[in-house]
């Protein structure tokens, strides 16, 4: 049931947007009974909203749906990070700023992060961003998602039901 819990599962947007939230554990999401907490998507950046030193919200359109994403940029003034080593926090903040500078409307981005909910909608809280230069990367992502779903996720789900 938890075999992929800490794995960044590659999901197409239409599949991601059907995940259900566990009422017992708000950080846990389920795909056909299989618990998940992290996901990876790839597609066009089609929306972009920056609140400097707070967050960058954007969405990824992979052709099957749009996944909202949030990249936090508040590491240097958030109490959440206050007990961590300042040099580590600075490093995390610098990486986040670098990612934010790369996310622009129209780029093809591969994004990894935690699956979270905000105001009843699913989103990815971003931990990694890679800007894809190869135009075939989208097709490869579709084929990866289809193969993994059929050969892995669906089989694991059947074993949990």
């Amino acid at each position: 049931m938890d075999a992929l819990y800490n794995t960044h599962v590659k999901l197409l947007a239409f599949d991601f947007l059907k995940l259900t939230n566990s009422s017992m554990d708000p950080s846990s999401f389920s795909r056909n009974g299989m618990r998940l907490s992290r996901a990876e998507t790839l597609g066009f950046v089609v929306t972009w909203e920056l609140k400097p030193n707070k967050f960058l919200k954007f969405s990824i359109d992979d052709g099957t749906g749009c996944i909202p994403c949030v990249l936090w940029l508040n590491q240097l003034n958030s109490p959440y990070f206050s007990r961590r080593n300042p040099s580590d926090v600075r490093l995390i903040a610098d990486v986040a700023v670098k990612f934010a500078s790369e996310i622009q409307l129209g780029v093809i981005a591969s994004v990894r992060g935690r699956i979270t909910g905000y105001r009843g909608a699913l989103q990815i809280t971003v931990s990694d961003v890679v800007i894809e230069r190869d135009p075939n990367s989208q097709v490869l992502h579709w084929l990866d998602c289809i193969r993994l779903s059929r050969k892995c996720y669906d089989k694991l789900s059947k074993n949990t039901v």
């Binding site: 066009f44 052709g63 129209g106 190869d134 135009p135 075939n136 579709w142 289809i146």
Partner: peptide, 23 residues
Amino acid sequence: VGRNVDGMDLNLYRQSLQLLRDF
């Protein structure tokens, strides 16, 4: 939005799109 996708394999794209729709 739009972008240049020179280098895209259009035959692969077409075939993969059909697989995606079937999936």
